[in-house]
Simulated assay, not measured.
Amino acid sequence: MNTFRALEAYENTNGQFEQRIIQRAIEDLPDGELLIKVAYSSLNYKDALSASGNRGVTKKFPHTPGIDAAGTIVVSRVGRFKVGDPVIITGYDLGMNTFGGFSNYIRVPANWAVALPDGLTLKESMIYGTAGFTAALSIDKLLRGGVQPEDGDILVTGATGGVGSMAVSILAKLGYRVIGATGKSEAREMLMSLGAADIINRREMDDDSGRAMLRSRWAGVIDTVGGNTLATALKTTQYGGCVTCCGNVAAADFTTTVYPFILNGITLFGIDSVNCPMAHRLAIWARLADAWKPDTLQHQYQTITLVALPNAISLMLSGQHKGRTIIKLDD
């Protein structure tokens, strides 16, 4: 337990960022009330950005990314958690500017930890990870906005990504008719197996007509990519519908008008999974462990080790990654 393995992102002598597996010492970890032996982590787009030197995500390098971790407590300095308790850590500063989950051990503040809910294994919690948690927060917003299965189709953009694929499977579990938008035609079979009723090409959600409003198509939209796709989603959502926004892989900015809001009464919800209040965080994880748990959960991931992680990061940055990738760390 004195030393352990971790992935480290670093800047080489040519000013390029690379990743390597290194040995670290427990005493090198940041201070915190909980020392956790990590069983699984998961790969998210933010991890790929951190691992490639994006200083908007991580300010100082070398650094160990990993915004997700699930494992067992080996040291606790607080009463509400004891040694042996299984816990989930997602969000907060884990893996951003704090030593992250791509490691055999992490040390974190106790108020970052969620006790593993009944009905969920550590591995399943990382099949969800931040992606599944974000998808669930988005679906919760649709429900709070009054969008019901009988109201019409739900569009999920970036449907082959982590958040998108999770949103498709959870929505299908809840009885919604889900349409997935993707640029990967070869992913049709995968998305249909997760419960999508149909697939459209992402170009259909990239309107350049200049029109303020378009034909209404969706009762709700879970947008994971931002940019003009989000603007198009707003213009094509039916009266009283809801759109959620959680990503910016296409672009961080977009141009729209007030007309979708004042003519169709559209509601746009922003989704933040990093600083979600703990009471709401616990409620969402409880749903993911029970009523919202997709029957397809065990079929929408791949498992890799730390050694294979740099290649997976490269695939994600190049847009070739699909679904969920979890990292097994308890070897």
Rank of each mutant, 00 (worst) to 15 (best):
residue 237 T to K: 03
residue 55 R to C: 04
residue 4 F to G: 02
residue 157 T to F: 09
residue 294 P to W: 03
residue 143 L to I: 14
residue 75 V to T: 13
residue 173 K to T: 15
residue 252 A to M: 08
residue 89 I to D: 04
residue 73 I to C: 12
residue 235 K to Q: 09
residue 27 E to T: 15
residue 185 S to P: 00
residue 97 N to L: 13
residue 47 D to V: 11
residue 8 E to H: 10
residue 51 A to Y: 01
residue 328 K to N: 12
residue 18 E to C: 14
residue 187 A to L: 09
residue 113 A to L: 09
residue 42 S to T: 08
residue 302 Q to G: 14
residue 268 L to V: 07
residue 9 A to F: 03
residue 123 K to D: 12
residue 304 I to W: 03
residue 239 Y to T: 15
residue 245 C to E: 11
residue 190 M to C: 00
residue 141 K to F: 07
residue 318 S to D: 13
residue 241 G to P: 05
residue 175 G to P: 10
residue 237 T to A: 12
residue 2 N to Y: 10
residue 44 N to K: 02
residue 268 L to S: 01
residue 326 I to S: 01
residue 313 I to V: 14
residue 111 N to R: 08
residue 248 N to D: 10
residue 127 I to L: 07
residue 205 M to K: 02
residue 298 Q to C: 00
residue 173 K to A: 07
residue 178 V to F: 09
residue 73 I to R: 05
residue 118 D to S: 15
residue 228 N to G: 00
residue 11 E to V: 12
residue 279 A to Y: 07
residue 326 I to R: 03
residue 95 G to A: 08
residue 268 L to D: 03
residue 206 D to S: 15
residue 46 K to M: 07
residue 203 R to M: 11
residue 237 T to C: 04
residue 76 S to T: 02
residue 49 L to A: 11
residue 60 K to E: 15
residue 193 S to D: 14
residue 86 P to D: 11
residue 69 A to C: 12
residue 283 A to Y: 01
residue 82 K to Y: 00
residue 126 M to F: 06
residue 271 I to R: 02
residue 96 M to R: 13
residue 137 L to V: 08
residue 174 L to D: 04
residue 27 E to N: 15
residue 119 G to S: 11
residue 282 L to S: 06
residue 3 T to P: 00
residue 288 L to K: 05
residue 191 L to C: 04
residue 120 L to V: 12
residue 300 Q to M: 15
residue 212 A to L: 14
residue 66 G to A: 06
residue 58 T to M: 10
residue 31 D to F: 10
residue 176 Y to D: 11
residue 39 A to K: 11
residue 218 W to M: 06
residue 254 F to N: 09
residue 180 G to M: 00
residue 95 G to P: 07
residue 175 G to N: 08
residue 119 G to N: 14
residue 196 A to K: 02
residue 238 Q to N: 13
residue 308 A to K: 13
residue 149 P to M: 12
residue 89 I to G: 08
residue 184 K to V: 10
residue 157 T to V: 07
residue 6 A to M: 11
residue 202 R to L: 06
residue 4 F to D: 06
